[in-house]
């Protein structure tokens, strides 16, 4: 096993962690596991791709790469727009599907089933619009640079790691230090009581979707930048996302990120030691182990 495994695992894990934060937030505040969350990753990646291509077209040709990175100025601009669009998509899905079910007081499992239906609809819609051919943000090749200690990384990978770290810290501070964060935690404790105490529950729910979908968009773009963009990418990431959210402990943002890194590292080691064809089984093994040994996760509270 080479030290390079560490780098690959951390980069993949940061992506998984960002997605898992969205899952853990919806799970702890809206109280259901959202099978459509993976689709927010894919939709985020495709929306950013569409906006970036549109900007490039308006500017007359693809933008030249920024500094050491493989992409031009259009991608960061498109990312901001893509986050807003993905958040809007999540709000629309909530308004059309989850909201009405919630107001009717449907059982948790009906919400889960609805999310399953929404996932297939969203994914097939992507396949219809963009076809299942893989797409790329950039065709530029990047040379991995030595970092010392036998580690090599491309500037894109380092940027992804840095961005993930900043986002986790920001979300954690937001949840623990601000008024909206306090409201979110109150709703996650007890929705009715929080409502009686004067917290605008609907605002909190909207905030959860905006954060979850925004982070999913960032994770999807990272995955698209470092690997490729496919309509199936959200589905393939869904099990690692769930494994990370449960391993980290439902409701814990730092837990989700740490667990995401663990899942990413375990996948990278499996690729190295067992073979790439078994990569997708890693998340299931971790899931089984955590459900057997410690169902509340590393940083979760007992139910």
């Amino acid at each position: 096993m080479t030290p390079q495994v560490l780098m690959d695992g951390l980069v993949a894990g940061a992506m998984i962690g960002l997605g898992a934060i969205g899952i853990t937030l919806t799970y702890s505040i809206l109280r259901f596991s959202n099978f459509a969350h993976g689709e927010f990753l894919s939709w985020g990646a495709y929306l950013v791709l569409a906006v970036a291509s549109g900007l490039g077209f308006l500017a007359g040709g693809p933008a030249s790469p920024l500094g050491p990175f493989s992409f031009g100025w259009t991608l960061p601009v498109a990312l901001v727009a893509g986050i807003a669009l993905t958040a809007a998509l999540a709000l629309v899905v909530d308004a059309l599907l989850f909201g009405p079910l919630r107001h009717r007081g449907s059982a948790v499992i009906i919400l889960v089933m609805a999310s399953f239906g929404a996932a297939l609809t969203l994914r097939s819609l992507l396949e219809f619009i963009f076809t299942s051919k893989p797409m790329y943000f950039t065709s530029a090749l990047q040379i991995a640079r030595p970092l010392g200690g036998g580690l090599r990384a491309t500037p894109d990978q380092l940027l992804a790691l840095g961005l993930a770290a900043i986002l986790v810290v920001a979300i954690h501070l937001l949840l623990t230090r601000t008024a909206i964060g306090r409201s979110m935690r109150a709703v996650s404790e007890n929705r009715q009581l929080a409502g009686i105490a004067g917290i605008d529950v609907r605002m909190v729910i909207r905030t959860v979707w905006i954060f979850g979908a925004g982070l999913a968009c960032v994770a999807g773009v990272m995955s698209g930048l470092l690997v490729q963009i496919r309509p199936q990418m959200g589905l393939d990431l869904l099990l690692p996302l769930f494994a990370a959210a449960i391993l980290g402990g439902i409701g814990s943002v730092p837990g989700a990120m740490i667990a995401g890194l663990i899942v990413g590292l375990a996948e990278a080691m499996t690729v190295q030691l067992v073979g790439a064809e078994w990569r997708a089984a890693v998340a299931f093994v971790i899931l089984v182990a955590i459900l057997l040994l410690r169902p509340r996760g590393l940083f979760g509270r007992p139910e």
């Binding site: 099978f35 889960v112 099990l239 769930f242 494994a243 064809e277 089984a281 057997l292 169902p295």
Partner: peptide, 27 residues
Amino acid sequence: LTIRLRSDYLAIATFGAAVAIHLCILN
């Protein structure tokens, strides 16, 4: 594995089982 836990863990575990089974018959 999951029937004692809350109801959506069964959903996640069966989803994972299907992925793992598909992977096994493929590999």
